[in-house]
């Protein structure tokens, strides 16, 4: 990665971290409701992959831990926060919530709550790309435990069979809610599960964004050049509980501490400092600016935005009637 890109990515990862921490606080203050799944610890995964891909051009889809993926694709953090506040200005107009961030204008095709659901949707988007002849690719970010859904295997088979331009990124954080991967899955290293389909696969350290970037370059090039699907496994860790109601009784504080020693932000920060490209004071200034931006713009926007109107409860269930009239009434003009 080029130096200026590294510095920009560091700044972005700080934003991603602070955004999520601020969500935590807002949840405690009951500004955010429902289920909230946070991303701290895993930032290098999304950032490394999307640096190698083309955000806003490639189609991205993921699960419920979706805020950072949306922002990285170009969604406005203000609109993402407004969504979490349930406001009309939110990225899904307050209808979706934390697990269902969408920004189709940025080709962020959404967060979905059912584990494994996005696998075939990603392959379907890849099928559309193939039909339409574009140079985009579809990227599916999901967790390790999702691979235990049957649809994982069904999708891999079709993607390989039809050589679809889809990249599966498995963020292996070693847990599915409170169940450790060894207790749910016959093989810990997920990339080994896909070779039976003849799909190219690799495993990579998910804490070092430069390593992720390098591995993702290979993966993205493979997919974009028509060589079929690719499966990239990133070994990572989520610092917080699965969602807000998780006291993390299933893992030790020592294990958490060990992973925090390999914090993706600190790895990049320390490398830049060692290279003489950054000082600690500059880093601290980035954190301060980020916090100020989140408070003065992101939170302010979410707080001040209006709620959806109750009269609009049934809006978005179906397409606007007027536009569909010929097909709804059988009276084509």
């Amino acid at each position: 990665m080029k130096l200026e890109d590294k510095k920009r990515v560091l700044r972005e990862m700080v934003l991603h971290r602070r955004f999520e921490e601020r969500c935590y606080q807002a949840y405690i203050e009951r500004k955010i409701g429902g289920f909230l799944h946070l991303y701290p610890g895993q930032e290098a995964c999304c950032n490394g992959v999307m640096e190698a891909a083309r955000p806003g051009h490639d189609y991205v889809i993921t699960g419920y831990r979706d805020h950072v993926h949306a922002i990285k694709c170009g969604a406005d953090p203000k609109e993402v926060m407004a969504e979490l506040y349930g406001k009309e200005t939110g990225s899904s107009k307050g209808r979706g919530g934390s697990m269902h961030i969408f920004d189709v204008s940025k080709r962020f095709m959404g967060g979905y709550a059912l584990v494994g659901g996005p696998f075939p949707l990603a392959a379907g988007m890849a099928k559309a790309i193939q039909l339409k002849g574009g140079d985009e690719i579809a990227i599916c970010f999901l967790g390790d435990a999702a691979n235990n859904q049957g649809v994982f295997h069904e999708t891999l088979n079709m993607a390989a069979l039809w050589k679809l331009p889809v990249l599966f990124v498995c963020e292996n954080n070693l847990y599915g809610i409170g169940t450790a991967i060894e207790r749910s899955t016959a093989i810990v290293h997920q990339h080994k599960r896909v070779c039976a389909y003849g799909i190219e696969a690799a495993e990579c350290d998910g804490q070092d964004v430069e390593k992720v970037y390098a591995a993702a370059r290979v993966a993205v090039d493979h997919v974009r050049h028509g060589k079929g699907p690719y499966f990239l496994e990133l070994m990572t860790y989520r610092y917080r509980g699965h969602s807000m109601s998780d006291s993390r009784g299933y893992r030790s504080r020592e294990e958490e501490e060990m992973w925090k020693q390999r914090d993706p932000i600190f790895i990049l920060r320390d490398r830049l400092i060692a290279e003489g490209a950054l000082t600690m004071a500059e880093f601290e200034a980035i954190e301060k600016e980020t916090d100020a931006y989140i408070e003065n713009e992101v939170i302010k926007f979410a707080e001040e935005s209006p709620e959806p109107r109750v009269e609009d409860l049934e809006k978005y269930v179906f397409a606007d009637r007027e536009t569909q009239r010929p097909w709804l009434t059988g009276k084509a003009a």
């Binding site: 409701g33 209808r95 709620e307 109750v310």
Partner: peptide, 16 residues
């Protein structure tokens, strides 16, 4: 309930 996928927003949810 209203014939809608459940909205996230608290007020809409109550209305549904």
């Amino acid at each position: 309930s209203a014939m809608v996928p459940q909205p996230y927003n608290h007020t809409l949810e109550k209305a549904a």
